[in-house]
Design a binder for these strands. Sequence first.
DNA 1: GCAATGACTGGTA
DNA 2: TTACCAGCCATTG
Length: 108
Amino acid sequence: MARPDSHPSDYAERVLEVVERVPPGRVMSYGDIAEYLGEGGPRQVGAVMSAWGGGVPWWRVIRADGSPPPGHEVRALEHYAAEATPLRPGTSRVDMRAARWDGTELPG
DNA sequence: GCAATGACTGGTA
DNA sequence: TTACCAGCCATTG
């Protein structure tokens, strides 16, 4: 796994770049980003976020079922509330059908 | 080179 | 709906 203290690889920088492009109120899954880049897989994206995700809107990158990253659920929920991200009623998960960002829809 | 690990995913019960 | 399982793949020791 990549370590936070090591320098981000080119792949890591591409991942972080995509995350920064995700508009507020929208999210992408780890698998979505991997597919969008056309390299690596969900695990690799997760490894990048774990190591260097602190410098980007990490709460906009979640699991395919809408669950925020483990250990950061509360923080993520605070951001969702601030950005009006659609949440599934009665849960702490994002409504992926509504909030999923294709990567092609521009914020406007 | 090999075995273990991890902010994952989709299928099945 | 939640829980468990096999597959996935680069990084780490």
